[in-house]
Write a protein that binds this DNA or RNA. Sequence first.
DNA 1: CCGCATCCGGGGCGATACTG
DNA 2: CAGTATCGCCCCGGATGCGG
Lengths: 216, 216
Amino acid sequence: MRSYGQYCAVAKALDVIGDRWTLLIVRELLQGGPSRYTDLRNGLPGIATNLLSERLRDLEAAGLVKREDAPPPVATALFSLTPRGEALGPVLHELGMWGVPYMTEGPASRDAFRGRWLAWPAENFLADGDPDAPPVALELRVGGDSVVVEAAGGEIRTHPGPATQPDAVLTGPPHPILGLLSGGIDLAEARRRGVELQGEEGVIARLRPAGGVPTA
Amino acid sequence: MRSYGQYCAVAKALDVIGDRWTLLIVRELLQGGPSRYTDLRNGLPGIATNLLSERLRDLEAAGLVKREDAPPPVATALFSLTPRGEALGPVLHELGMWGVPYMTEGPASRDAFRGRWLAWPAENFLADGDPDAPPVALELRVGGDSVVVEAAGGEIRTHPGPATQPDAVLTGPPHPILGLLSGGIDLAEARRRGVELQGEEGVIARLRPAGGVPTA
DNA sequence: CCGCATCCGGGGCGATACTG
DNA sequence: CAGTATCGCCCCGGATGCGG
């Protein structure tokens, strides 16, 4: 990308990751770990193939991504983040948190969706209402893939699913699940809109203790 | 900007602030407070006037910026951030911190510079080495404007200068000042490269206690 | 099938000129 | 001072081709 020509940390950062699609590629690698070209293409609906390959080359040249030849059984290239690339985690976290309000308005007509993208709304809306209780895991299973939300000791963590032993599983379309997490609708209303809950119902109550949005 | 068409918090955020120059305009408003058009133009060397006005319109439409008619003595429009715009503070902070390493390599030949841009390197490299001592203020005066770095109770804060009663003032070209802050060069070498120190020399020692880069 | 390279149309961007 | 107007260019998007 064309440099801003400013001796400023923010401008220099944008010189490196300001190109279109670049941060979304980093998002994929952060959430999915080492990935094949096709995995990335699949996680980035809408990207043109030439842009993906060009960005990967740029990111490699900038030292954020490294390309490895996979071990024998796979025999294909794997892209993964270098430490410098992983250091973008906090940036993406803050950016995602800032963007969560745009999701509560519902998806635009033709928006693509992946279940793992619920990680940011989950971290934003949920809290561990009972820090002294044993850890619980809630799996959100939407549109073919899933995120696991874990609450332990007052902390909320998310990582790509599926979970080995989830205490509860929510299945259904993205918008009512989001409404349930944010407190905009209750469980009965969510069920009416296609959400199914397996496992302990108490998990939901623990993660959304106030019945509203905490720390808004 | 063209939407990514993804129902993801990060993608939605980039739909709003992913356009070129947009985050740098927010940077100016965050650091400088309510600003006139010309102030923004001055703080954003390299931007085309049509882009600045177009971005300001977009930002206003998105609810991140509000335009106010200034009080009588000034009689010109002032642009300032809404709460939603100010909520980008943590994003810019993380982005700036991530970009600091690109500044230690020195400015490119034709890079523009403003003293306040030293805020991020200062927050990154400095620490309060003596939390129990009374607060101190260090002013960095570079290229016509300045930042104030305050250390109090173990915390480092920065805000646009000048300071009312600085305990020390560093004046000089950006690169050796940065080298001094980062620990890459010592005070004697910095002086050789055009840096001048007024006030208490001990302030420098307190802010760079280990003589190296803390929490690297 | 995977991982690109190439080609081409359209629009965002950059620089300058111009206006109230 | 605070923008608007204009124009060339390059980045981006979409489609297709192609070697391993």
